[in-house]
Amino acid sequence: MNPSSTRRGALQFGLKTGTALAAASAFPGLISSAYAQSGWPTKPIRLLVPFAPGGSSEIVARSAANELGKTLGQSVFVENKPGAGGNIAMQECAASSDGHTLILGHIGTFAVNPYMYDKLPFDTDKDFKPISLLAKVPSLYVVNANVPAQNLKEFIALARARPGQLNYGSAGNGSAGHLAFEYLKMASNIFVLHVPYRGTGPQLTDLLAGRLDAASVGAPAILAHIKSGKLRCIATGTKERLPQLPEVPTVAESGYPGFEMTQWYGLNAPASMPQAAIDKLAEACARAMRNPQATERLRGDTAQPIGDTPAQYAAFIKTEQARWKQVIARAKIKAD
């Protein structure tokens, strides 16, 4: 699948909405007046998820939205808006001035796309404010049940015996799964073809059907398929083995010391949102991610709840950007 047409749409979208974004930046006083009222939020909050339903982003977003709604006293509804590697949703959020639109931050949209695209219709650093890192999700390396490899060592041997004949899918160029597998390819010196999709859901459909050989996917989205035997986990990207999959070794202990790969999800707002609202949201995120029900739900899907401060999240994004800028350059990853 080739999302190039969608990416062209994103650039057209950027041209159409650029005026709105400029207006929001030019008149911050008009926007801030909405927050002068003590009752913010005054209406339901929209949480944009820049990917198709069915992946780890869906699980984290809905868990966070449910708990945030309880704390803030307003509904937080999740709206999936995939396309162009997440840039369509990012542009819409950046241009929003209603004071009630947020976006689910992700390794791809905040740490990868700024270096994978030659030009974006928004500035990732200037047009968004970090609120809180919500959760980290382990990346699992899996194959479909028909691939003759029981573990990572056997898969690497198979890939070396059949260079270019095996493929792996991802939720799109620059997605966490794309980065994770390219990271593995560099570490193990193998050649496996990349097939990008528009989201984890469509990718999993082909992986389960045997039309894809392998993938790296966030644990929450595929743990049930591993348990049922429809997919085989050959390694985890974590530092230590997962309690849910104690028999599966990490990539590091499979012959690649120091290897680690996890996805992450945070909450971000348009730059037009006043700091008072950001602080209120950050406090709500901290409570939400520490709520026993949310914690149990996320950890049951192997996600690690965080809920930190805007400053901590901002520093984390900077660290991730520096890390993946190097990986993108070495793997020569470019947007279609």
Rank of each mutant, 00 (worst) to 15 (best):
M116V: 15
T101F: 00
I234W: 00
E247A: 11
T17E: 13
G54N: 03
P121H: 03
T71P: 07
Y265F: 14
M289H: 03
V195S: 10
S228Y: 03
G54Y: 01
D206I: 01
L133Q: 10
A64Q: 07
A284G: 06
V195D: 11
Q165D: 12
P310A: 03
V143R: 00
P121M: 05
A34R: 13
P163V: 06
S170D: 07
K325E: 12
P148Q: 07
L48T: 01
Y115T: 08
F155H: 04
G201K: 03
Q165E: 15
T309P: 00
T250V: 08
A176E: 14
N113P: 08
A145R: 15
V195G: 09
K126R: 13
M186S: 12
P274W: 00
V112K: 01
S32K: 10
T124C: 09
D123K: 05
I306D: 06
Q165K: 11
P121R: 01
A94L: 00
R8I: 12
S228M: 08
P44K: 09
R211N: 14
Q244Y: 05
N151L: 04
E58D: 15
A94T: 00
Q304N: 10
F13R: 11
T262N: 13
P114D: 02
G174D: 03
A252P: 04
F13H: 14
A64V: 12
K129W: 00
S188L: 02
Y197I: 04
T295N: 08
F27C: 11
K119H: 14
N2A: 14
L223F: 03
L47N: 01
A269Q: 00
Q37D: 15
M261C: 12
G258E: 04
P138M: 03
R46A: 07
T302W: 04
N268V: 13
D123Y: 02
Y256T: 09
H194W: 01
Q304M: 13
S25L: 14
G201N: 05
I333N: 03
L184K: 00
I103F: 00
A221K: 05
D125M: 10
Y115R: 05
A286S: 12
Q321T: 08
R46W: 04
R330L: 13
E247Y: 09
I222Q: 06
N146G: 13
A36V: 15
E260W: 08
L30R: 09
A34W: 10
S175L: 06
V137H: 02
I59S: 05
A329C: 06
S175W: 00
R330N: 12
H178S: 10
P246I: 08
L207N: 01
Q165V: 07
A89V: 02
L158F: 08
Y115E: 08
L281V: 08
T205M: 11
T302G: 05
R290C: 10
A157E: 13
F259M: 07
G237D: 07
S96A: 14
A157T: 11
S170E: 04
G85D: 00
H194M: 07
K280N: 08
L242R: 07
E283T: 15
D213N: 13
P243D: 14
K43T: 13
N144Q: 10
A314L: 05
I333L: 12
M116S: 12
K136T: 15
C233H: 06
Q263R: 11
P257H: 02
F259H: 06
Q150V: 09
G172H: 01
N268D: 14
A65Y: 03
S97I: 06
T250E: 08
W324I: 11
A36W: 11
K126Q: 15
R46D: 04
E283M: 11
A20T: 12
H100R: 06
